[in-house]
Design a protein around this nucleic acid. Structure first.
Length: 505
RNA sequence: GCCCGGUUCGUCUAUCGGCUAGGACAGCCCCCUUUCACGGGGCAAAGACGGGUUCGAUUCCCGUACCGGGUACCA
């Protein structure tokens, strides 16, 4: 019997969740679900100084919006809690002490100031096998001195003692075998002076205690993997170490480096999943949700950033992704984010969604614009008429508000240059004809329109655009006669009349 | 600097030694549409470089270049 697959996403609550974070969640989630396993969210809040109010709530709201709900977390509960590292503080100390006792870690009394001046003095100072002999720690101090310092409450940390000449290797699910030399690793702090563990200790202890079988995280963690491997070994858990996978990064669309919050503002696209306002700086960052993305499209787009199924298929539902996802088809290299492609995914999802599905979100947007929807059937019909033209949900407002209210602006300039008395006469007659018509159906309206045009010796083509502008306000939208049907006889006549007024000198 | 990772059209990518290097986005053109889209068709566009290995390298190995990540009592 193989172990039950368990994966975790371990964000620190320091701000909103951006693209890369959600993609990491996604890959964790997909793999876990595919294997019939568990997806867990653990909050890594060991750095009290970076705690940001509301960030944790934001993370869970984002996961909910994306449809990537964990089965265990501080809010969902579960048998391996608590799931917030700050609430597990007592657990880590024990393991840190164990490491010290086994001489795999040691107390260090160097103050932050001392270390800082050391770094100034020596450009690339590392606290490692070369330098630890010159520092103030339980390796260089006598037992009495150490006990003295500790008993008098001197602030100190616990650092891992990295072995001197050893190869540390492991197999990454994406990159294959990766080899590090222990001589390159430094003696990372495991337990901070405030008694909190650093990420390095906490991640190993918690992954072990929570029976994590696969640890997927961003590539930025690759360099600290050797420390974590060492810890798994030191703690005697090597046989239960999860399989690692370091996911490729999402890069800026232009220039160099990984995608950051600032790129969004600079280039005009969202980077966060949802709108986020930093409570301290009040800085705002816009999100995909509020920009008018469907969660399905957002998730779909993220999945294809670094993964593909090899068939050329690009549109996948979450269920399909769960079915098809495989780690050995995850690309190794970082991917530049392309907002145009992201919009394409959304457009595809809007086109393929039913009006019924789209309706609630679109309705909210209309309400925000002061347009309330009374006739549900009619509203869905309108959505059906315009959805092919909407890339973002917000586009529905621009594409369909004229169905509910007279156009705010009318592009008179589009018809004025070719306007003449003959055309005016035609429209006057058209009004009469429409007023008299018993039926109000697209085919009939078009027939009447064309017959009247012929009678006036005018080409329908010259008249269709003016009619469109009169009804819609501009050169866009679905078929004119479909529009006339929806807005009804009175409104159609009214809008034509209104424009005829505008066109009179 | 040092360590680790990466390198196919502008972008996302396919190719598990046989390639006329395929697809998608964006771009351009045409058709459909008497609007704008949708849809259909087409054009243009790539293996960083140098060495090996091999009958044959985009694919395997080495070097160089370039890009990225890391180098905190941050995650």
């Amino acid at each position: 019997m193989s172990k039950r697959v368990r994966l975790r996403f371990a964000p620190s609550p320091t701000g909103g969740l951006h693209l890369g974070g959600v993609r990491t969640v996604l890959f964790n989630y997909l793999f876990a679900k595919q294997q019939g396993g568990d997806f867990i969210v653990r909050i890594e809040d060991t750095d009290q100084t970076r705690f940001v109010e509301g960030a944790e709530e934001y993370i869970f709201e984002t996961l909910k919006w994306c449809g990537l709900e964990p089965s265990e977390s501080p809010v969902h509960g579960g048998p391996y809690g608590p799931y917030r590292q700050s609430e597990r503080k007592d657990i880590y100390r024990k393991y840190a002490d164990q490491l010290v006792k086994n001489e795999q870690a040691y107390y260090a009394f160097d103050t932050p100031e001392e270390l800082e001046s050391k770094r100034k003095e020596i450009p690339n100072f590392q606290y490692n096998q070369l330098s630890r002999g010159q520092m103030k720690n339980s390796l260089t101090l006598s037992n009495e001195e150490v006990n003295q310092l500790i008993s008098t409450g001197t602030r100190h940390v616990i650092r891992i003692k990295v072995p001197e000449n050893e190869e540390i290797r492991f197999t990454d699910m994406i990159r294959g075998e990766v080899i590090f030399h222990s001589s390159q690793a430094d003696d990372k702090v495991l337990l901070k002076a405030d008694g909190m563990p650093t990420y390095h200790l906490a991640v190993v202890v918690d992954d072990y205690l929570m029976k994590i079988t696969h640890a997927f995280r961003g590539e930025e963690w690759l360099p600290s993997a050797p420390v974590h491997i060492l810890l798994w070994r030191y703690l005697g858990w090597a046989d239960e170490m999860p399989q690692w996978a370091h996911l490729p990064l999402i890069l800026k669309p232009d220039g160099n480096g990984k995608l950051s919050k600032r790129d969004g503002d600079r280039l005009g696209f969202p980077v966060f999943a949802m709108d986020w306002t930093d409570p301290k700086s009040n800085e705002k960052a816009s999100g995909f949700k509020e920009r008018g993305f469907l969660p399905e499209a957002f998730v779909n787009m993220l999945a294809l950033l670094g993964w593909n199924d090899g068939t050329g298929q690009e549109i996948f539902s979450l269920a399909e992704l769960t079915e098809e996802f495989s780690m050995d088809r995850v690309h190794k290299a970082g991917a530049r984010f392309d907002y145009e492609k992201a919009k394409w995914f959304n457009h595809e999802w809007i086109k393929h969604s039913t009006a019924e599905k789209l309706e609630p979100e679109v309705k909210k947007l209309f309400l925000a614009k002061g347009i309330s929807v009374t006739d549900q059937k009619k509203f869905e019909h309108i959505i059906e008429l315009v959805k092919d033209r909407c890339t973002l949900l917000a586009d529905f407002v621009q594409q369909a508000s004229f169905f509910f209210q007279s156009p705010e602006t009318i592009d008179i300039a589009a018809i004025q240059p070719k306007w003449d008395d003959k055309k005016e006469l035609f429209f006057v007659e058209l009004i009469r004809a429409y007023q008299l018509s018993a039926l109000w159906e697209a085919g009939d309206l078009e027939k009447e329109f064309k017959e009247l045009a012929a009678a006036n010796q005018l080409k329908p083509g010259e008249l269709m655009l003016p009619l469109r502008v009169m009804l819609v306000g501009g050169k866009f939208g679905p078929g004119v006669f479909d529009i006339a049907v929806v807005i009804g006889k009175d409104e159609t006549v009214h809008r034509i009349q209104h424009c005829l007024q505008l066109l009179r000198p």
